[in-house]
Design a protein around this nucleic acid. Structure first.
Ligand code: MN
Ligand code: MN
Ligand code: ZN
Ligand code: ZN
Lengths: 146, 146
DNA sequence: GTGCTTTTTGCGAACCATTCGCATAAACTT
DNA sequence: AAGTTTATGCGAATGGTTCGCAAAAAGCAC
């Protein structure tokens, strides 16, 4: 279960309200629905998939709005965008740093964390004389047969 | 200087001739030009850029052929395709495993190797019960100011 | 609530990297 | 050289994503 704020809102929803307000952006039903639907998704849906799910809540939501909203949520730091080598981008609510291993046989996405990896990456950047601002890392593989 | 085979061909060109022959593919001027031009590129050109460079050698080369040839060279394992978050893909002749750090201020691509990173990645996959078949890793950052 | 201003939405069109179909051309085989 | 196969160039199609615009909704001030 995701954490909630003192009003019972999920944290990401609470952040949406706060960030929109302080940036002079309007809080629309579409934005709330799209964020909520993404929050409740257990996978890493594409824009198309997310739009279908959002339309089950509000059938008038257009795909252009889903694109624009995901772009906005991404800028606000609430949503992450990934490239899993599909033709289209995949999204998820940012729930803390983690990486992805895509099972090339099933398409399933395994999430994992590795402090060791984070530390090594930062060390590599520093050794090269760089301040890292972002990085992408995805693994592709299949289950080990024994 | 890239290594050459006993006939003086660069290794990648030599491999092209060999792999095409054994796969029943034809060795065309276009394929040779495109591979040679990419071999001589010191950067990681886009299809568009590579096509321009190839056209300086043979002005009739079409961009469709550049796309098809890069796809082929990639399948043959001679060429690598990268996603540096640009709108378009970037290519290079495979010259041994290395990673990329893209300078977000200059666009410059810094190459680096890290045995430690390779080892850690393989360990992570194995710990998850997976056989890794591929992975992508790119860093984005800017020079450290002191 | 009513207005008034600003932002957002839905729609369809545009964009643009990449892929395709097809007729012609070039490469390989005999 | 002739025959067969594969590759090329061209322009059209594709498909994910972005844009322009008029209409709708949100926020703000009475
Ligand atoms: Mn509404
Ligand atoms: Mn020729
Ligand atoms: Zn995830
Ligand atoms: Zn490189």
């Amino acid at each position: 279960m995701a954490k909630t704020d003192r009003f019972g809102y999920k944290i990401s929803m609470s952040m949406l309200l706060q960030k929109c307000t302080e940036a002079g952006l309007k809080i629309t039903d579409q934005r709330k629905v799209i964020l909520k639907v993404l929050e409740e998704s257990e996978d890493h849906p594409s824009v198309e998939t997310l739009c279908e799910r959002a339309r089950q809540v509000d059938s008038s939501i257009s795909i252009a709005t889903v694109y624009r909203t995901l772009g906005l949520l991404n800028e606000l730091g609430l949503v992450l965008k990934h490239d899993f080598k599909d033709s289209s981008a995949r999204f998820e609510v940012d729930h803390g740093h983690h990486y992805h291993l895509v099972d090339t046989e099933t398409g399933q996405v395994v999430e994992f964390q590795s402090e060791e990896l984070v530390a090594l990456i930062n060390k590599i950047a520093a050794d090269l004389g760089y301040q890292m601002v972002d990085h992408t890392f995805e693994m592709f593989g299949h289950k080990l047969k024994k």
